[in-house]
Write a protein that binds this DNA or RNA. Structure first.
Lengths: 341, 341
DNA sequence: TTGTAAGCGTTATCAA
DNA sequence: TTGATAACGCTTACAA
């Protein structure tokens, strides 16, 4: 009890919660006493009495199913930073999105843990079942990089379409005309945007897209390798491959090496995400840098504002959103196209 | 209130906590009522009354400083699995180990969050300052892969020394005699063991270790590349490089590619960890598989037992520990040594 | 085997 | 601007 220290009792509560109506003198007294006793309010008591848990849940795909755990790491970094700043705790909640029972599981999570809000990251940020479960509870939530229905909730995103457009243009400007694109599951919202950006850039530069030069990957290294091998088996193979993420791009590089092709001399490769694998490939990968941690920070901030503000009541006005900037990172896996045959 | 349902009030508590002295009939009634009302006890109330938080903190190095976020991902997977199983929640606590103020920070964490126990992973599992802070609080904690003083607390580990020995032997059996080793900061406990395993294997096979063939890396791709380039600049370069982790091994492969050397024909490379980068390199990396998630599961279990058992009193007897098995994974980056010159 | 009553340390309500 | 006092929903005695 820090109350012993100063002179008051409930005043302590007021001070620690930055409530008004406390004279500066008292406020100081309390603050000093708290420091002296190394005092810190009991979270459980606070939650119980105030009906707030100071807990935020981060929902993501079970990482044992995820080809790029890297993304989650950066999301955690960003979310944790903001949580610490505002005195919240982050609860990790991996889910198997395709479990037919997710809806119940999420409901149970909400009931059990009493979280104050939730953050959804891809591909969970496009799960209708999960969003329905949350909406039924009335809790606030934010989505990172949503694919459809962006205005269903507050969200943070970057322009994947434009980024893919820019990367494609980068390759076109290097003189490439036959460019292979490795797409991913289109239920992953951003994957769709990246494909569109590629197609638009090609169209606007009057370069036809040969259908066999669009491969279906699944974000794994192996799929990138398989698609690239198929490309290289074509009568006229591409001079560049643009993969919708870095893992698949790494697979493309591996496929080239396997055939004895030099990168970027014989085949150029570019990726997307600027994940840690981009630094591991040889040559280092040209890719699109996504500000993942920053996106998570922004999302967490959006959520906390919402938690602190109107507690779950949708008062008509539009949901807020925040767009962050990407950056094309040119490294050594792309170079000018070989002279025409 | 599920109490409405059955007939009792405190009985509910007994049932939900698996306490004895409840007739099966009543127990059933309560359980059914709970299900019907989708009831779940309020964690805050429970913590407040019972002086338990059901929270476990995972302490790790700030991932923005960490060259291999992969390790943390797997630790999280394992720890989360066990937490869910036993009804605990996992709190993420990244720390900058070299911050002179960590001791206070940890103390503050313990006071503020009221965690019931802590898990320390490398390199934090060897931080004397952090362990002191925890010990001062009397809370139970477990260490994963400790370097020194293993018996200071319950711990989970694998035999890094023997694993490195085996990998070295694998290379020796392939006919390699000049083998470069890339070590890492020796304050990282396991790093020391890996070096020792390498040295022992070489000695026992009567193959001298040429000092310039032991490079000082720091777990990053870049350092692996730098060390390997130095090796290759020697009058008699090695025919194989064994790096103390996969990132550095990836750097070794990159260095070879950069010089136009083929892997494994001109230079063999092996790593340690079997992290996700091992699947991204070309050729795929021969490495030591560490059961990281399983180690984390075991550690979490050890901790929870301790939390449930004697609450923080060290009753004389030795701390428990658990050793898990590694596995040498031979992929395509190692092959028989070129014939003698 | 079951129930009653007294806290746990906050916040919310309402008076002072 | 402050301070009693009653919740909050459990667990832990202790009694029945």
């Amino acid at each position: 009890m820090a109350r012993r220290a100063g002179v008051s009792i409930k005043t302590v509560s007021r001070v620690l919660n930055n409530e008004p109506n406390v004279r500066p003198v008292k406020r100081q007294q309390v603050l000093e006493a708290a420091r002296a006793l190394n005092y810190s309010p009991n979270i459980s008591a606070r939650s119980l009495a105030g009906d707030k848990s100071f807990l935020i849940a981060l929902l993501y795909r079970d990482p044992s199913l995820d080809p790029s755990p890297n993304y989650i790491s950066y999301v955690q970094i960003g979310a944790l930073a903001k949580c610490r700043q505002y005195g919240f705790y982050l609860l990790l909640e991996p889910y198997d999105m395709h479990d037919p029972d997710v809806e119940n599981e999420v409901q149970r999570l909400i009931i059990r843990s009493r979280v104050d809000g939730l953050i959804l990251i891809p591909p969970i940020s496009d799960s209708d079942a999960i969003m329905r479960a949350i909406e039924a509870s009335g809790l606030p939530y934010v989505r990172i990089a949503p694919g459809d229905e962006p205005d269903r909730a507050p969200h943070v995103f970057m322009d994947d379409r434009q980024a893919a457009y820019d990367m494609t243009e980068h390759l076109l400007k290097l003189g490439h005309r036959r460019i292979g694109f490795i797409k991913a599951h289109l239920d992953h919202g951003a994957a769709q945007f990246r494909l569109e950006g590629f197609q638009t850039a090609m169209a606007e530069h009057n370069v036809p897209v040969d259908p066999p030069l669009v491969g279906q990957g699944d974000f794994t290294v192996e799929s990138g390798m398989r698609c690239t091998e198929a490309f290289l088996d074509l009568p006229t193979p591409p001079t560049a491959v643009f993969a919708a993420n870095d893992e698949m791009a790494a697979g493309a590089i591996a496929a080239a090496h396997k055939r004895g092709l030099a990168v970027p001399a014989d085949l150029c490769v570019s990726g997307f995400d600027d994940s840690s694998v981009a630094a591991v490939t040889w040559p280092p990968l040209t890719t699109v840098h996504q500000p993942i941690a920053e996106m998570a920070e922004a999302a967490t901030e959006l959520l906390i504002e919402r938690i602190k503000g109107h507690k779950s009541d949708e008062t008509g006005d539009r949901f807020p959103s925040r767009q962050l900037d990407y950056r094309i990172v040119v490294r050594d896996s792309t170079a000018t196209a070989p002279a025409e045959a």
